[in-house]
Amino acid sequence: MPLEIYSRGNRYWVRGRTDGLDGYIERSLKTSDIQVAAAKVAEIERKARQRAILGSDAPTEEDELTFAAAVVLYDAKPADAGYLLKVIPEIGKMRVKDIKPKLVRDLGKKLYPAAACDTWRRQVVTPICAVINNAHQEKGTPPIRVKAYTPAERQAQDEIRGKQSRKKKTPGSWDWLDKFRDEANEYMGALALFMFTTGARVGQSVLIEPKHLELRNSRVWLPPSKGHPGQWVDIIPEMVAVLANLKARNGKVFGYASRHSVYGPWQTACKRAQIEYIAPHAAGRHGFGTETVVRQGVNPVDAAKAGRWSSPRILLDTYAHSEESSANVRDAFTRGRQSKSAKSRQVKIVK
C-alpha cells in the first residue's frame, strides 16, 4: 500500500510502503499541521526513490542533516537559542558533516567583529558545538571539537577592539560588604551576605524558598541550577540570624524572581554607598575564595569543598585573588638573606 497519512491523537502519522526498498513503515510525523505532514511524507518518498536509484551510493539521513535541522533536535537554553538565531542564517543550510572547526572559529569574528575572543567562544563556538555533538548522539553525524583561542589571538583581538578582555575581578570583602549592606534593602543585603559567606552563585541563591531553610542546623538547601547539583550548605551564625528575621517575598527567601532582577538594584546600592561596583558573582563566589584562602589562610582543599568547587586547582586558578604586590616576594628574599647572613656570623671558626 502507498504511504498514507492518518491522525493519532493530536499528531499525524504515516504508514505504508515507499517506491524504494524500505519495506513497510509506520511512524509519527511529529506534527499536528496537515500541510507540514504532507511535506514530510513527500520528503520520505523522495529519499526512498533516491535510494532505489542510487543504491548504496545514496546519501543517508546522517549525510543530509543540515545544521538548521540539527538545531531543532537540540534542547537549547534561552540564552543559547538567542545565539543560535544569529548563527543559523550563516550555516543553517550547510550539512552538519561539512562544518569544520576552522569555519566555526572564524564565524565568531564575522558575526561579532568588535567582540572579544571569549565572546566568540561563548556565543558562537560553544552553542554550535553543542548542536553538532547533540546531533552526533541523536543521528550519528560526526562530532566536532574546536580548539580554544590562544593568548596571542586574544591579545590581537583586544588591540583591534581597543579594550582588554579578561580583566582582573575585584573580589568581595567584609569591608566592602558592610558598606554595601548599609545602603541595600534587607533582601539585597541578605543575598550579598549569603553569597559571600557560602560561595553560592546568584542563579542558585535566588531559587531558595522558605522550605529550603533548616536554621536549627545552621544550613540551607541550595537548589540545583544549570548543571549545578542541589546540596546542603552550612551557614555562619550571623547568616542564621539574618534569615530568621527575613520575611519571604514572592515565595522566595531573597525575594527576587531571577538573577536578572538582581543586577539593577545591586548597581544602585553600590552608587548609594559610593563604593566600587563589584558584580554579584565577584562579590560572592570570588569573595568567598579570596577571603578563605588568601586572607584567612584556609586550606585550599577545605575551601574548595565548602565552596563546591570540583578541585582546589579551579579555586586557586580563578577565584583566589592575590592582594599583595610583588613587594612581599622581595621581602621574603630579603628576610632569607638576612637570616642566612646571621647564621653565617654565628659559625665559629675552628683552627
Rank of each mutant, 00 (worst) to 15 (best):
G9D: 04
N10C: 02
W13E: 04
R17G: 00
R17I: 04
L21D: 12
G23E: 00
Y24R: 10
E43R: 13
E45S: 15
K47L: 15
S56M: 03
V71T: 12
A76R: 01
P78H: 06
L85D: 13
P89A: 09
G92R: 06
R95S: 05
P101H: 08
K102S: 11
D106S: 12
L107G: 06
K109F: 09
K110D: 02
Y112R: 10
A114G: 05
A115N: 07
D118A: 15
W120A: 01
R121A: 04
R121D: 06
R122N: 07
R122I: 01
Q137C: 01
E138H: 03
K139N: 03
G172I: 11
S173E: 09
W174H: 13
W176G: 13
L177T: 12
M195R: 11
T197R: 15
S205V: 07
V206E: 07
E214C: 02
S225Q: 08
I235S: 06
I235C: 06
P237G: 07
L243P: 01
N245A: 14
L246D: 07
Q267L: 10
Y277D: 07
A283T: 10
G289V: 06
T290W: 10
T292D: 00
Q296S: 10
V298Y: 10
V298T: 11
K305G: 01
D317W: 02
S322W: 08
S326Y: 12
N328A: 10
R330G: 03
F333H: 11
T334W: 05
R335A: 12
K343A: 15
K351L: 11
